[in-house]
């Protein structure tokens, strides 16, 4: 049995399809519970509709980057397994690294070499990529409730400052991701600056001309347009 006979075999596709279907049902159930709660809390239907619409538009562009990750992984691991990993649990930034780490631990220099050694390495790679996340999943199951509960308690206890403290938590994420862009070359900096400028301009237009719908899509439009601008900046830098 060859590596790709299994990796692109119908059995793996069926199993992966079932796994993804399970997570989609879960998404639908979480949504149902949340929508019911939203109604109980008196959240305006328009707010919910805007949340849905902006989330759809916002997600499309970064998802294309994930799809590109699938295209990058498919020649080494087939389509089914990367499709599963990138749809659920995995991250486009870690998956290829995870597959390569598992492969090198098996004694192969690269994924392509493992694929030449028959189907056996595929089983080990799938187990390793899954087992590597076992600790993370167990921690999630145990601690999400505890941390959320603690955050709400601390926020309430801290009074007005609690609102500030929760608000600034995201600043730590921003600082960690934004500051390194300035060392990644002109294209990254120019793309970042374009995104900043576009967000400001679109926010100004939405406010000045009272275009309410635009307000919901500023981030999504800035994201897509500034991604496109990176092509221009790359051409100019060359």
């Amino acid at each position: 049995m060859e590596f790709f006979d299994v990796a692109n075999g119908s059995l793996l596709f069926v199993l992966v399809g079932a796994g993804i279907a399970y997570v989609m049902v879960q998404c639908a159930l979480f949504m149902r519970i949340s929508l019911k709660r939203a109604r109980e809390l008196g959240i305006d239907g328009k707010v919910i509709s805007n949340t849905v619409k902006s989330s759809i538009v916002f997600t499309i562009a970064p998802s294309i980057a994930v799809a590109l990750g699938l295209a990058a992984m498919a020649p080494s691991l087939g389509i089914a397994w990367p499709w599963f990993r990138l749809s659920v649990i995995g991250s486009v930034s870690y998956e290829l690294m995870a597959a390569n780490m598992a492969t090198s631990a098996l004694g192969f220099a690269k994924l392509a070499d493992a694929a030449k050694a028959g189907a056996e390495p595929l089983g080990a790679i799938m187990y390793a990529m899954t087992g590597g996340l076992a600790g993370a999943i167990i921690l999630d199951i145990i601690f999400i409730k505890k941390v959320d509960s603690l955050a709400v308690r601390l926020k309430t206890k801290a009074g007005d400052f609690g609102v500030v403290a929760i608000g600034v938590l995201f600043f730590a994420v921003l600082a960690v991701f934004v500051v390194p862009f300035f060392g990644q070359g002109l294209v990254a900096v120019a793309t970042f600056a374009t995104s900043v400028a576009l967000t400001l301009v679109l926010a100004f237009i939405a406010k000045k001309f009272r275009i309410a719908w635009l307000g919901n899509f500023i981030l999504a439009f800035s994201l897509i347009l500034s991604m496109c601008s990176s092509v221009l900046w790359t051409a100019l830098v060359k």
Partner: peptide, 29 residues
């Protein structure tokens, strides 16, 4: 705000929608 009742509900709806969209894009790809 995050860590508020409304925030909890809306972020769950947002992530559920986002997950479905990402899955759809990857299936298409």
């Amino acid at each position: 705000q995050p860590a508020s009742e409304e925030g909890e509900v809306l972020s769950t709806i947002s992530v559920a929608v986002s997950s479905i969209v990402t899955t759809a894009v990857i299936i298409l790809a």
